[in-house]
Design a protein around this nucleic acid. Structure first.
Length: 465
DNA sequence: TTTTGAGTTGTTCGA
DNA sequence: GTCGAACAACTCAAA
């Protein structure tokens, strides 16, 4: 029986297993999987360079997967509503199935499409549907801890959905050529470090999960050590939906010890961040709290040092070994260890007193796991400008963080000009041991800290008037 | 309704 | 070296 085909509209849910849209669509008729690169959509964040690289390879992997299921991946570029309507008309498809996404531009696109076609939305890229949990008084959660507590109580026990049984389909609509999209670097090949580190696609994601399950027990002890490969490195796979968080959660149920539980808490942070952007769609664009407007920060138009400080931070030439190691790891691999993300972000926001949104944009462009919700929530947390309480006056000390979390080997790996220094000297190389090629500190910890606190005191005084 | 307890990931200072 | 207090004081969630 060959009924009307059904479109599966893919965004960042590029998998077959535990993908509710595929599963439901396959039960309704022949499936036409469609991915539309809609990066000129009004209000949308264009994927950053590292994200585009990842997307290229992830689509390639999904297309190969679909080919093994006697299916295809239809690629289109432009307005997603127009393309989906056109494909529906061309093929006689009567339904579009898709997973829900909560970026403001996807919410807009979804409602625009629902006006024109029979759109069936499914949950599946989060543990619980964002917005489904409410406090006792009926409001949405704003703070992580009570949110996570409630989420743990409400999580359904369910097995991941199997891959869909795709019935062969004959008449395929036209598809773009992936390579012609030019998602990979055009001029200089900055992606060699990414290629060494990553393999996109759901098979690679499953392998990452399998590897991590063997060391999840030690996660609690090792996750904060940048020099140890103690984290899951699942973030880009989860962001692109190559693996479902529900499947990761279920797999971790079988691991004993508090390490797995701590990691499940990290998965809940993903859900929490979606709840935040659902309530505050421009959360990644503007400070949540008053006082953190553009006159709080050093202004590039008034302070010529801002531009050079920013460049030094981006290039990993701040003179703080742990900061430089992190920023170079990011540039080289498209990823940075979580502990070091905090340190480098805090350094930009507090020691350099540069608007967190500038740092957020850099991370957006350079991270393979760049995620609108996670990026904004975490930068605002570091900056102390967000819904969750992190005092601005808590200023991370990069040098003691570096020692505390044993970053010597990590620094040697990413800042080779310091590789000859011993453990005692490498976190804060004294002037005599500083190699000539390695820059002085942009600002001393004491001065940077004082400047930040001074700005904060001035802001508070201003608000109270 | 009012009150109370608590908030991912800290740092510095002085005893 | 280790410990506890101060930082500065706000907002949310739940009883």
């Amino acid at each position: 029986m060959q009924g009307n085909p059904v479109i599966v509209w893919l965004r960042r849910d590029l998998r077959l297993v535990d993908q509710a849209a595929f599963f439901a669509a396959a039960a309704r008729g022949p499936v036409i999987p469609v991915f539309v690169l809609d990066d000129e959509r009004a209000g949308a964040r264009k994927p950053g360079g590292a994200s585009r690289w990842w997307l290229h390879h992830s689509l390639e992997a999904l297309a190969a997967d679909l080919a093994r299921h006697n299916s295809r991946l239809i690629l289109r570029r432009g307005d997603c509503v127009e393309h989906l309507c056109q494909i529906a008309e061309e093929t006689g498809a009567h339904e579009v199935h898709a997973l829900r996404h909560y970026e403001p531009w996807w919410r807009d696109a979804t409602s625009a499409l629902a006006d024109k076609l029979d759109l069936v939305l499914h949950d599946g890229n989060y543990l619980l549907p964002p917005g489904s949990l409410t406090t006792a008084s009926g409001g949405a959660y704003k703070i992580y801890t009570p949110f996570a507590k409630a989420a743990r109580q409400h999580l359904p026990q369910r097995d991941p959905l199997p891959a869909p049984n795709l019935t062969p389909h004959e008449r395929w609509p036209a598809s773009d050529n992936l390579t012609a999209w030019g998602l990979r670097p055009a001029r200089s090949d900055w992606a060699s470090g990414l290629r060494e580190m990553w393999q996109a696609g759901s098979h690679a994601a499953q392998e990452r999960l399998a590897v991590f399950l063997h060391k999840a027990e030690a996660y609690e002890d090792q996750r904060n050590l940048p020099g140890v490969d103690g984290t899951s490195r699942l973030s880009p796979h989860l962001h692109w939906g190559e693996i479902s968080p529900g499947q990761v959660w279920a797999a971790l149920e079988r691991v004993r010890g508090c390490g797995a539980d701590t990691f499940r808490g990290e998965l809940l942070w993903r859900d929490y961040a979606q709840n935040v952007i659902l309530q505050f769609p421009d959360y990644s664009e503007a400070s949540y709290r008053d006082g953190f407007g553009s006159d709080f920060w050093r202004r590039p138009d008034l302070d010529g040092g801002v531009e050079t400080d920013l460049t030094a931070w981006q290039q990993g030439r701040t003179g703080y070994p742990i900061v430089d190691a992190g920023m170079r790891e990011l540039w080289h691999t498209g990823w940075m260890h979580n502990r070091v993300r905090m340190i480098t972000a805090s350094f930009l926001v507090k020691h350099l007193l540069i608007d967190w949104r500038v740092g957020e944009r850099w991370f957006w462009d350079t991270l393979v796991d760049a995620d609108y919700a996670n990026n904004g929530v975490n930068w605002q947390w570091v900056a102390g400008s967000g819904v969750d309480a992190n005092m601005f006056t808590r200023i991370m000390a990069p040098l003691s963080q570096s020692e505390k979390f044993d970053a010597a080997a990590y620094i040697r790996q990413w800042v080779p000009e310091l590789a000859n220094l011993d453990d005692a000297a490498i976190h804060d190389p004294p002037p005599l041991l500083r190699p000539s090629g390695y820059p002085d500190m942009l600002v001393s910890h004491r001065e940077g800290r004082e400047r930040a606190l001074q700005a904060y005191r001035a802001m508070k005084a201003d608000i109270c008037v």
